[in-house]
Design a protein around this nucleic acid. Structure first.
Lengths: 252, 252
DNA sequence: GTCTATAAGATGATAGAC
DNA sequence: GTCTATCATCTTATAGAC
């Protein structure tokens, strides 16, 4: 296995550093509502099948724990086909990550903007957090396994130090800045550092809940079920808002 | 590479399932203060070097992202030596995880017991959380890179769904039960489920902070630094206690 | 677009010398 | 206890037929 990433641009040292999941940040083209041939439709269906299978596997074992053979087998496509559609393993991972992130970020911005518009002058921490979370819970409630897999993947990315922090920054920070902006208005007494530290704690709590690792089921001996959206939603909003307010109140 | 885990007990299907980081749960023997030969001392030093290097690498790339050759090179030992001392890759990972967990859990129990003893009848959420966290911050302040690596590793484990939830359960839940016990006394009005959900949020926040991914540095444009213990300690205690209280107060 | 075949190299693990 | 040499298998990626 060649884990040394072949640089896409430089012909330089082939394995100076180990390959890392590193999304390109570019927004790949998406299906346009134009006329599509039979072949093209089938191709898109195949690509979706590959992405779904890759998402499922990456979500459970991370980038390195999945081989292209695993993905090929699970998607009933050939490994050569993965390369044909996505180039290499790295780009496949990038597209898995980017596919739903594009959707989620748009939804979040819409929710945050709507909330800010309708409550200008009376913003609350609860309101901003709820608006930010709304798209996540909507997808969770819809029960789509693809979204559940994606959330697990984000949890791994958020907590993996080598490439996770950088990945989260690139994919999510623009939207996070919008959230922080609302929180700043809702909590004008908070120091800047408070907002960021509190967001970090909120982020860790959220991604762990979304990861649905099953730990809480065992720890609570069945009193709680991973992924119980009704149990989670009001608690995380309450918990987080109280946390922000308490920290902000301590600032001198 | 054989990722199909060779079962330690059953001679059954060789690669029915993919190998997963799965700690044995057994407590391996530790250096006894007996008379040690020159050879034995050197052996222990080599083992420590291997464990340190493996810890560093696993913390950054997870189980699958590290090869035994990587560990051998980083520890300046031979791959054959890794097998001699630790058997296989899985057992090496297990021992990395178990080594500091043994120490940390003992310290936590001691801190929690001491706190409960000295404050019987007047337990607070802040006090219990602070006692639970005390060993972590002590190690972080001491600046040992080994402990920092270990904390990163725990963050990955906590958020990886395939093996993480189960790993956390096995290694940490006995101590967590002790913490929950104190929180139950400090918050008698809380429903059982509240305690577990709030602990889950606390756990996610804590492990992400400990992972020191560098994201908060970028997001805050330098206002916060990953691993700034003085900035983190009072905030996480405040934030968490307020969160627990707020959720508990909502229970009907 | 999809598949077969295969190249080129990496990986976990072991045998055996010292 | 440590190192050299090596195996059997797996992995990513590509070339070329259909």
């Amino acid at each position: 296995m060649n884990r040394g990433r072949k640089s896409l641009k430089t012909p330089g040292p082939i394995k100076a550093t180990r390959a890392r999941p590193r999304a390109s940040g570019k927004v790949p083209k998406v299906a346009q509502p134009k006329k599509l041939s039979q072949k093209a439709l089938q191709s898109l269906a195949t690509q979706a099948r590959i992405l779904d299978a890759a998402e499922h596997l990456f979500a459970r074992r991370g980038f390195y724990g999945v081989t292209l053979r695993d993905v090929a087998q699970a998607s009933e496509a050939d490994t050569a086909l993965l390369h044909y559609h996505f180039g290499d393993k790295q780009r496949l991972f990038d597209e898995v990550f980017a596919r739903r992130t594009r959707v989620l970020n748009e939804e979040r911005i819409r929710c945050l903007d709507l909330y800010a518009e309708e409550n200008a002058g009376a913003l609350t921490v609860e309101g901003a957090i709820a608006a930010f979370l709304q798209p996540i819970f909507a997808h969770s409630r819809a029960g789509d396994p693809g979204w559940k897999n994606y959330f697990k993947l984000v949890a791994i990315a958020n907590n993996t130090s080598e490439w996770g922090g950088e990945t989260m920054t690139r994919f999510f920070d623009p939207v996070i800045e919008r959230l922080i902006e609302l929180l700043r208005k809702a909590l004008p007494e908070a120091a800047e550092a408070d907002l960021y530290w509190c967001f970090e704690m909120f982020s860790g709590a959220l991604t762990l809940l979304d990861a649905e690792t099953g730990r809480i089921d065992r720890l609570s001996k069945g009193a709680c079920q991973s992924g119980d959206v009704d149990a989670i939603e009001w608690r995380i909003i309450n918990y987080t808002a109280a946390g922000f307010r308490s920290v902000a109140a301590q600032t001198r």
